[in-house]
Design a protein around this nucleic acid. Structure first.
Lengths: 218, 218
DNA sequence: ATACTGACATTCATGCATGTATGTATGCGG
DNA sequence: CCGCATACATACATGCATGAATGTCAGTAT
């Protein structure tokens, strides 16, 4: 085989990444051999070594491709100084739910990150980045709850700290439980029901005189 | 070296398990070689193969040794038909927090289970058991919330389903976040604060006439 | 048209890791 | 006190997986 055109080479690279995604998902990162990836992609190991220096770089590149829109979504939620931050966050997290539930590639990659990869040695770099993302998210959410508090919309039963931590950790737990056990429940339905009740609890109860619309479920 | 006494053999087995725990924690399960474990335990691979058929069985045995008291704790919480299931669950989960925060062996083993192990191939058996445990826990907790509801102690803002799922997933997320990033925050303090607010939200608000003790924070 | 280089394929040397087979010394039951 | 089973250590065969070195042919610039 001779030289390919640039477009074809890019396509090869893409096929390698997609193959890696599938094989990592099925076999785990550590026990996946470059030979397997090559076979799945219809190339040889030589091609992989041409496009990537080794397996770690391949993994990193895969990781790069799924930065959750969540990051910017929640950041925008703060930056906008939306009049109702709680409402905005609730809607935002619903979008995240829908997105994850429909995007199979995202599911596979997050599954790899969650429970198909041992975070030791070089892989610790990946963990560090995930931690940064998580901490940034927590900070943003916390700020949103602070905003809600300033606007008198946060129930006095919560602090911005506890509310944000409960919210973020709940979502984290829900996602990882779902991915870990092979997506064995309806995450959108379950998630929405839980989040609706949780956010209702976050909001300050309506004034005493307002008896027509109670905050309980319909 | 010749034959050892039974007690010495048991001690050797124990040393192998402890060594495996440390090495798995540091290097991950997949990339840990039996040679490393043997060296750490001060024996040869022959000894390991004598006591365990292979690495998987070693891992399983390690897993067996940390069945959370949580399992029976929450089961008791239901079986007892405690007058205040919410109170009991809250106290129970505080105990779990304290336990995990103090027991370093438990921390290491749960860290291995959470992010030092690729769940593929034979390791899927381990996952199945974890799922069984988790589902059983969710069922128990759900029942407790049903009990609380029947006794009129659950806030109408929650259903037993949403409350139990939020509770369980929050704890799951909190634990895994903590373990994943190297236990970089005070889990007891954070956890207690969050759980206090969460359980306050779970409880039915006191009667309107009772204005002396409001449910807001102190 | 030619030289050069990009995009791979192929081959090879090396190093582990595993599992098993075998050696061996010793505690223990009869 | 004798023989066997126990509790290991040692040695070996096998099979990958890696990384690098080399081969090859077709685009591409001049």
């Amino acid at each position: 085989m001779g030289r390919k055109t640039k477009a074809e080479a890019a396509e090869t690279r893409e096929r390698i990444l997609e193959a890696a995604e599938r094989i990592f998902f099925e076999n785990g990162v550590m026990r996946t051999t470059l030979e397997q990836i090559a076979k799945e992609a219809g190339v040889t190991r030589g091609a992989i070594y041409w496009h990537f220096s080794n397996k770690l770089e391949l993994f990193q590149e895969l990781h790069e491709r799924v930065r959750l829109p969540q990051e910017e979504m929640f950041q925008r939620a703060i930056a906008d100084r939306h009049p109702d931050p709680l409402q905005l966050m609730e809607e935002t997290v619903y979008s995240c739910l829908d997105l994850l539930s429909k995007d199979e590639q995202r599911q596979r990659i997050y599954t790899i990150l969650t429970c198909r990869c041992e975070y030791v040695g070089e892989m610790l770099y990946a963990l560090e980045r995930q931690r940064d993302v998580d901490e940034e998210l927590l900070t943003d959410v916390k700020q949103a709850f602070h905003l809600a508090q300033e606007q008198g919309m946060l129930s006095p039963a919560w602090t911005p700290e506890t509310a944000s931590r409960v919210f973020v950790s709940f979502m984290s737990g829900l996602f990882s439980d779902w991915l870990r056990y092979g997506m064995n429940f309806e995450i959108v339905q379950t998630g929405r029901a839980c989040l609706a009740d949780l956010f209702r609890s976050f909001r300050r109860a309506p004034e005493a005189g307002d008896s027509s619309q109670s905050p309980v479920r319909d």
